[in-house]
C-alpha cells in the first residue's frame, strides 16, 4: 500500500520535474516546479520528517515559487511566453549527459555494498525500526522522529549554532544584495528605451 503511494507520488514528482525543464511557457514551468516541490514534501512525510515537509511547503511552494513567478512576470510580460527562445545546440549533448549521469547514479546505488558493518543501500528494505514506548537516551532517531521540532531546535542551538547564525547572515546578505543589485537608478533606461549605458569596447584577443 505504502509502496503504491510512493510510486504515485514519485511518478507525479518526476513528471512535474520533466515538465519544468521541457515546457516552453515559463509560468507553466514554474507551476510544474511547485508541483515537484509538493511531491518532495510528500516524500518527506513518507520518510517521517513531517517538520521538514512543513518547511518545504512553506518555503519552496509558498515563497520560492512565488518569487520565481515574479521574476518571470518582471522579465517577460504577463504571459510568460518567450518568442525568442530557440532550440539550443546543447540539447542533444545535454540530454545524453543527463541520461549518463542517471545511469551512473543508478548503477552506484545498486552497486553500493556498505562500509564496514553497514548494510548496502540496495539491501535496506524495511526501514530501521524505531521502538515504541518510552523515550530513552540511546535512541537518537526515535527522539528525532517523535519530537522533530524540539530536537532540531536544540541541535541548531548547540552543535550547529555557527551554521545557524551564518544562515541568518546569509539571508540578510542576500536580501541586502538583491535589493542593491535590482534597484533601479535614475539614469538607467526604463522599459522600451534603448540603453544609455555605453557598451564596452569588444575584447581584442581570446584564445
Amino acid at each position: 500500500m505504502i509502496r503504491v503511494l510512493f510510486l504515485v507520488i514519485a511518478v507525479t514528482g518526476l513528471a512535474s520535474a520533466l515538465a519544468t525543464v521541457l515546457i516552453k511557457n515559463l509560468v507553466r514551468a514554474a507551476l510544474a516546479l511547485a508541483g515537484f516541490f509538493f511531491a518532495v514534501a510528500c516524500l518527506f512525510v513518507l520518510l517521517e520528517a513531517e517538520f521538514l515537509a512543513a518547511l518545504q511547503v512553506l518555503i519552496y511552494v509558498g515563497a520560492v515559487s512565488i518569487l520565481l513567478m515574479f521574476g518571470i512576470m518582471l522579465t517577460r510580460g504577463v504571459q510568460g511566453t518567450d518568442p525568442a527562445s530557440r532550440p539550443s545546440a546543447w540539447r542533444l549533448p545535454g540530454v545524453v549527459i543527463g541520461l549518463a549521469v542517471f545511469a551512473l547514479l543508478g548503477y552506484a546505488i545498486f552497486q553500493e555494498t556498505g562500509l564496514g558493518t553497514q548494510r548496502a543501500w540496495g539491501a535496506i528494505d524495511p526501514r530501521p525500526a524505531i521502538a515504541r514506548g518510552t523515550v530513552e537516551p540511546g535512541a537518537p532517531r526515535r527522539r528525532a522522529i517523535n519530537d522533530m521540532g524540539k530536537v532540531v531546535g536544540v541541535e541548531l542551538m548547540t552543535r550547529y549554532v555557527v551554521a545557524f547564525e551564518l544562515a541568518g547572515l546569509l539571508l540578510t546578505a542576500a536580501l541586502v544584495g538583491a535589493v542593491a543589485v535590482a534597484h533601479r537608478e535614475d539614469d538607467e533606461p526604463s522599459r522600451g528605451e534603448p540603453s544609455r549605458i555605453p557598451s564596452d569596447p569588444p575584447i581584442t584577443t581570446s584564445p
Binding site: 505504502i2 520535474a17 525543464v21 545535454g94 547514479l105 546505488i109 540496495g122 535496506i124
Partner: peptide, 25 residues
C-alpha cells in the same frame, strides 16, 4: 512492504538528472 531505500535514491537520482538536463539545455 515498506519502501526500500533505493527507491528514494532512484527518485533523487532521476530528479537530479532531470535538473541537470534542464541546466544544460
Amino acid at each position: 512492504s515498506d519502501i526500500p531505500l533505493s527507491w528514494f535514491l532512484l527518485f533523487a537520482a532521476a530528479s537530479f538528472a532531470i535538473g541537470l538536463i534542464g541546466v544544460l539545455t
